[in-house]
Every structure is written in structure tokens, then in C-alpha cells.
Design a binder for these strands. Sequence first.
DNA 1: GCTCTTAGTAAGTTTCCGTAACTAATCTAT
DNA 2: ATAGATTAGTTACGGAAACTTACTAAGAGC
Lengths: 387, 387
Amino acid sequence: MQSTHLREHNLSAILRALAAAGGPISRAGLAAATGLTKPTVSKQVEELIDGGLIAEGTPVSMGAGRPMVPLRLAEGTLAAIGLEVTADHLSCLALDLGGRVLVRRDSEAPLAQEEPSRAVEQGAALVREVLAELGALPVAGLVVAVPGRIAPDDGRVLSAPNLTWENVPYVRELVAVLEEPSFPVSAQNDNRLSVLTELDARPGGSFLYVRGSTGVGGAVVLGGEVLDGAHGWAGEFGHTVVVPDGELCRCGRRGCLEAYISRHSLAQRAGLDPDVRLEDLVDRLAASRDRAEVIGVIGRSLGLAVANALNVLDLETVVLSGYLAPIAEEITPVVRETVQRHALAAEAGPIAIDRADSLADPALHGAARAALAPVFADPGAWMARGR
Amino acid sequence: MQSTHLREHNLSAILRALAAAGGPISRAGLAAATGLTKPTVSKQVEELIDGGLIAEGTPVSMGAGRPMVPLRLAEGTLAAIGLEVTADHLSCLALDLGGRVLVRRDSEAPLAQEEPSRAVEQGAALVREVLAELGALPVAGLVVAVPGRIAPDDGRVLSAPNLTWENVPYVRELVAVLEEPSFPVSAQNDNRLSVLTELDARPGGSFLYVRGSTGVGGAVVLGGEVLDGAHGWAGEFGHTVVVPDGELCRCGRRGCLEAYISRHSLAQRAGLDPDVRLEDLVDRLAASRDRAEVIGVIGRSLGLAVANALNVLDLETVVLSGYLAPIAEEITPVVRETVQRHALAAEAGPIAIDRADSLADPALHGAARAALAPVFADPGAWMARGR
DNA sequence: GCTCTTAGTAAGTTTCCGTAACTAATCTAT
DNA sequence: ATAGATTAGTTACGGAAACTTACTAAGAGC
């Protein structure tokens, strides 16, 4: 490591420590949190304040001694934009560094029936509305949440079944329509972005994240880092085999987890229209007369897939999200029973099966958060922009 | 990061780069590999030479220009000791920094029938023999490879079925018998240590390591780092469920991978004595008339477990080791077919299923290597020892 | 009002790395 | 043979970052 990088590293460490603190914190507190000395922290903090990333509050007395000057992430000094593309609507959200919502715009549109170019146009229009609202506020980046697989190299959408997209260079086209924006644009899988929102509530945690939406996706978080894998699909265990030579899955394989707990399969199992809207599915399930059977199937197949994943990863926590969150209380007993029966880690202690902190639109928020990441990773570069 | 740590960091980076180079390398080469400048590297190298961690060779001309001074890891200046405990023998190995074998001692003894205290005595005796042979050579550490589960906090052996051990504080007792050795002593699972040996051949790689011994263990390697997990048994997927409500496993569960491909199960399936020695099992299998069926069962169940693990981890490489290595060629076609059928990652490209570089006693070598790790992690601390 | 305690600042020092220029040793071409 | 090109490694200097020590600031408790 070069000596130049030391400063960048510490600048980032201080900013991250401030974010991790959860609330206002003094320079002395940051020094304790980072292991740096007070003079060093003071110098860096001064720079971060000048750069508009940190704000000072009015001194607060905390018992004996000189009152601390509370520091917090600056609000309203920059924006990071998330854009979520789904089969029936688009949403765009701008957050500031402190995670406050600056602007939000939505547009309803059945994109699944349309050409991808329509989604490009509509997405660009929504982003432009948000940018107009933001005025001259500098933008750190734009991240697009897509319900499909993304090529790790060029950000192409390899496939998004619900959108009926195959090999769509969405980001490239969006950039073209936006006419060379001054900020970086990228795309990521919606499940992987959702987990970032969950990570806010569990900083530095390690857990398996399972999200039920149209399919079943997820992510693996190890020590606060989302595992990437060779192609960026780590944790996508919708196609874990739970029953060898079992039911046919829409992916063409047999016995996949998705074949048992995806929207289509669930709807069929409950005797509902397979195209039932996701939001309605849970309520309909509750009204179905085969409720216990449905819960049993979800719980057992999910439990088996989770147990196998836990055996490989040796994790202690599972977080259920998406349509699994609202029914978490019901399915958890079955899932827990299955996991305890099959997971090795259960021998060392109980496995925690939690419901996601149910913030609305976790993928959208996660996308905006992901757009913020470069600022945290290298605050110096952000502050030096344009120079 | 404090400025003091920068030096340690770079010292370690240089030493690691030297090890990763695989052969002699010049100061200029190290500068290129680490991104540091030549003067910086020269200064650090001087210190490492003084500290006995690096040795200079005689200049070698590489075409035009001044000949390089080849640098290599010092040989015979320090020792790291590995001790392997199995059901029927003990082995002790001392390596120097460059990985050269300094001393090796073995003792045959059916430990499974004895009290753990016998294993402590015999292990200590073997270590003492090795220490005597090493003379005054400084010892970096001792790592014990145990075929069982180790508590991550205090190194207690939680359970080692083949040794019929339960909750044995082997390390603590070994340290007591050795009368407070000057070096650190720790224990680790044998599979996790074996993978370190494999990692020598795949520096910085990411792969799933599957080792068939009495049971079926393994490890997950991500970017050259062995994944720990919450309890230090990540990758131990012998108890992955491959057939729900399938065959009874000795762990009491049903349908575990081990129930299909462990030594006992294999021997039974091939109609052999269930206590057949592991070394003989492969040959006997080859002579068995049910060969195709055995290969089929191993391949399909292993393939399914591997495919599920790959779906969660998104890896591209699987390494077969232990008794799976010699039969790798035979089972690979079946495993590959099963993996390709079920693994999502297979859609992006072929999954490599490799045989481990079959070094004898990978766990023993891995243990000694693990004992070397602290020196690579902080060469400065090692060189400053006793001061 | 005095002392104690904690937050934050200022000045000077140390440590470490980088830059630039140099020497060293070999190969190559004339 | 000898000069020039080329690559390895060293020396001397300068700058950047963080640490140490000592200080000031401001409130709490007696």
C-alpha cells in the first residue's frame, strides 16, 4: 500500500464509522471507533465538513467535561439515485448521504408487454423528472434494480423472465438517452440490492437473505459484505434442488425450490389464478382452504434449502423478505423445525430465523444506497471531483 | 489505519508476493508485483534478509541489463510444526518458511481404542522428538490437525467420531505436557487444513473443496481465503440433504450426503467389511462387481450436493480430494452431468471439476503451513520476537 | 470559586514512502 | 574492443500522513 492511499483509507474509515454509529457522534468518539488519534480525526473531519459530507451540530453536554460537538452525515448536499424496474411499474428515488429521501417518482406501466426500449424511455423520463427536482445538487450515481441476472462485466441484463428480457443492454441505452450524464450508471439484481437495505439494520452482520418475489432469490452476507461469486449470483438459490426428480420448474429442471414456492406454484397449489398479483397472493392464501398444506409445503421445502445452504456457509441467521416476510410468523415454525433437523450449525445453538425489517421497496432503497457506496468508499475522490 | 501499520502491511505484502511468485524473483519484480517502488522494496527486503526470512542467491543474468539478484524464502532458518492425529496413527512434520521438509516423525497407534490422554502423551512425545531434531531452530508455532469439530474460541475438540472423542481439550493438555512451549499451539479441523495444501497450487483461487475420508468434509475458498463461518465449519457439507427422508445417516438424520458416500456406506454398498481401511477401499471398489452402481450413487449424490452448494456460492471450480481423488476420473463424468443439470452457474460456462494435486498427507502439510501463517501475516512481529 | 473531567486544537517530531538521479553489471551492435 | 542500450539496485532528498505532547475550552460537582 502506498502512503497516499493511507489518507484515503482513513477518510473512508471515518465516514463509515460515522454512518455505523447510527446517530450523532463526537470527534473523540470517532477516534475511539477508528483507533486513530484525536488530532488525526479532527483534521480529516475538517476536510469532510469542507467537502460537504459531514455536518456539525450545536454542542451537547454529556455529563462531566467539555460538551461534544455532534457530527452527522450531511443532509441534502448530494444525491444518489435508485431506479427500480418491475413488470408493472417504475420507481425512482433520490437519497442524500444520510439516507434521507429527497425525491421520489413512480410510473405505472405494464412493461412486460412492451419492448425493452419503452422501459428505457420511461426510465429515462422518470430519472429526468427526479434530476429536475434535484436542481443543481451533485449526483453521486444511478443504480438500476432489475429483476433478473446481470452480466458482472458490462452490466447487460442477461435475462429477466418477468420482463421477458433477454440480453438487453439497459444501462448502455439509458446512458445514451440521458445524453452522457455526469454520474456513473450501473445495474444490479434486485435481490442483491434489497439486502443492502437489510444490511442497514444489521451492520457488519452475517446472514442468509431469502427473498420471495415472482421467483425466489436471495443473497449471502458475510461480515457486512454481500458475497458476489463468479458471476454475481451468489445466494440465488431459487434453483436449489429440494426434491430430486421432483416437480418441473419453469427453468426446465426438476425439483427446484422455485417449483414449490414461486408465485405460480403457490397460486396453483392454492387453487388461484397463476397470474395473481403478488400483493394479493398472501391474502388469498390466507383465505384458501388449503392453508395448512400450503404453509407446510413452503416451510418444508424452504427449510430444506436453507438448511443445506447453512451447512455450506455455517451461518446462524436467516432473514426472510419479500412475500415471505408477511407470512414469516406462520411459516417460521415449519422452517425452523426443518432447519433444526438438517442443519449442522443447529447443534451449536439455535438458528435465528428473522423477518426482514419491512421497509417498503427495499430494492429501490438498496439501489439508491448502492449509488452512494462510491462516496463512502473514497470520499476524497468525491470531494475532489471536477478538479 | 495507523501509520505504524503501513510498514507491517507492506512487509507482509512483500513476503507474500515472494511466496506467490513460486520461484526466485528480483527486488524489481517484487516492486512490480506489489505496486511499491524499488527503494521501498529494497529497504524492506534488507530488513527481511536481516531477520532471516529471505535469502539472496547469486546474480543471474536475464538477457540485457544488469543481472537480477534472485530472492527466495529463507530455508532452514525457522520451523513450523504440524501434528496430525488420526484413528490409527500420529504424524509430526516440521517445515521451514520455504515449505521444505525439515523433520518428519510418525508413530503407529490405534488411538481410537484409547483414552484421549494417550493421544496427548504420544503426540507430545512425537513433538519432542521433532523439537530435539530441530535443535535451537526457532519455532513459529504448532498446529494440530484433528478429524473432528473444533471450538472456534478455545480450540477444544468438540467431537471427533473416529477417535471417539467428545469435548476433549487436546491443545490445553498438549501445552501442559510440553511444559509451556515458547510457541503458540492450536488445533484445526483436518479438512480445513488440507485445503491449505491445495491452496498452494491455486493461489488466490476460489473453489469448493470436497474431501472424502471417513466422513465427507470440505471447505469453501473465496479469493484465496478459507471461509470460516460462525463456528469454523463452513464447507462441511457431509450432512447436506440429498434425498429427503432418505437413508439413515450415522448422525441420526436422514438423507445426508454422508449416508450415501461415507466409508461405511460405500463399503456396505460394495458388500465389503464396513471397517475396511480407507486406503484399501478404492481398490476393493474397483474389484467389486457392483462398480457401476457404486460409481453412479457416488456421482449422483455428490453431484447434487455440489450443485446446490455452487448455486449458493456461485463458484466455477470444484476440487475433489481424499478418497475421491483417486476415483475422480471415474466419478467426474457422473458428477459433471449432475452438476451441469442442476447448477445455475453452469449456464454461464462449464464447471471445472478437478482432482486435488495429490500430495501425500495434505492435512499434515496444511497444519504445518497454518503454523507458518502468523509469520507471513506479520513478519515484523516475528523478527522482533524476544525483544 | 475551585477542581475534575472530557472535547478539541496546536506545534513539533517521527515514520514511511515516493521521486529523481545515480551507480552497477550485463548484453548488443558496430 | 568499445560505446551505447538496458535493466537492477542504491543513495539522497523531500513530502505526506499520522503520532506525541502539551495546551485551551467548557461544563459538572463540590
